[in-house]
Design a protein around this nucleic acid. Structure first.
Lengths: 151, 151
DNA sequence: GTCCTTGCAAAACGTTTGCAGTTCA
DNA sequence: TGAACTGCAAACGTTTTGCAAGGAC
């Protein structure tokens, strides 16, 4: 897996400048598995770069996405989240707390679909699960137990 | 399959009023397979209801969605599209023209996933394909042929 | 020195909300 | 009649854009 410096060196060959802001944003994205929003990246990176602006976050993630180094996960209601792993993989979003987790499963008959064409040229797909994460599930169970005990 | 009037009668029993605007919106959604955006619904329905406002479209589709009569398809970049068929089924969005088509395929290993739990309680998923529709594919081929002939 | 990038602020976009007036039941 | 709904406009949150100043190379 490439690190931030290696990626920025590759980008430099395309005429894209190596800036400390870009390095900080990319390092954060590569170091976390929390799939942060632009706002979350901003708050994290601002701790070291006091002058950092949200516009720079958006510009940078857009550029990194266009060059295939990160992935954008867009959920209808909420703001986009960014994933330092650009390989096709799945996620599950907790309906309660909103956190997004990697969901490492394989679906052979779905994955084979990429080879079939029927009038369409299928270029890709996005599969997103939603449910309740273990923490939220436990919280619900606790409430249920308390309710049962109160009766 | 229920028609607009039947659906609105069911909703009336929940205290939701039967208005001509709602009837027009729902009839349009049930009659088309183009997965229109709120804006597209608005332009269509406004032809008969000159006074119709976009706010009413949003209010109505939100209400219909909450009661499970329609489905919202949210794509990151573009605005949401609405589908008069609320059953779980798949779609493919053309990367070029932006149109969204039904994609009637079955993925048993994916569909079985709903039964499994591993720390998570999986409540559902969204699977969206993207590619090129036949019309856009043909346009690309035409360009390629013209380019080849020009050489 | 060049021009790409930054920070800032304003604008754009889709969507939601507040409110006064209207309509359904 | 009275609550629910409409149309309109203003507000909202996210993302993009314009521009002058700053920094990479």
């Amino acid at each position: 897996m490439m690190d931030a410096i290696q990626i920025l060196r590759q980008l430099k060959e395309k005429g894209i400048r190596f800036t400390p802001q870009r390095q900080a944003i990319l390092e954060f994205l590569l170091s976390t598995d929390t799939h942060p929003t632009a706002e979350e990246i901003y708050h994290h990176v601002k701790q070291r770069f006091t002058g950092m602006s949200l516009g720079t976050i958006y510009n940078t993630v857009k550029m990194l996405k266009e060059h295939g180094y990160i992935m954008e996960l867009s959920y209808g209601e909420m703001s986009s989240r960014f994933d330092g792993n650009p390989e096709n993989h799945y996620h599950i979003a907790c309906q309660k707390c909103g956190r997004v987790f990697d969901y490492n499963r394989s679906f052979p008959d779905l994955e084979q679909e990429m080879e079939s064409h029927q009038g369409f040229q299928v270029q890709g797909y996005r599969l997103e699960f939603f449910g309740l994460c273990s923490a939220c599930l436990q919280a619900v169970d606790t409430v249920k137990t308390a309710e049962a005990e109160a009766e």
